[in-house]
């Protein structure tokens, strides 16, 4: 059994103009990163209501990522 069995569930809110674009660019460059992130695209991180973050935790996220 490996020591690193903790595989966190991460919910990410990505800004369409920067972070979402950067995530696309990471793909274009074939950068590899762990597949733990599930993303929601928003038009701006300003859209993120604090309740979305709480809701995410309630739904079982181990971490919330906000990229903008």
């Amino acid at each position: 059994m490996s020591e690193n069995t903790f595989s966190p569930k991460i919910l990410g809110f990505l800004c369409n103009w920067c972070c979402y674009a950067a995530a696309d660019a990471a793909g274009v460059s074939r950068f590899q990163y762990p597949p733990n992130l599930r993303t929601i695209r928003v038009m701006c991180t300003g859209r993120i209501d604090p309740s979305f973050v709480l809701k995410g935790f309630l739904e079982g996220a181990d971490a919330i990522f906000s990229g903008g």
Binding site: D24, G27, Y33, P35
Partner: peptide
């Protein structure tokens, strides 16, 4: 693609 197959190729 950009945010899945390309970045989790392995």
């Amino acid at each position: 693609r950009d945010q899945c197959s390309w970045v989790h190729a392995n």
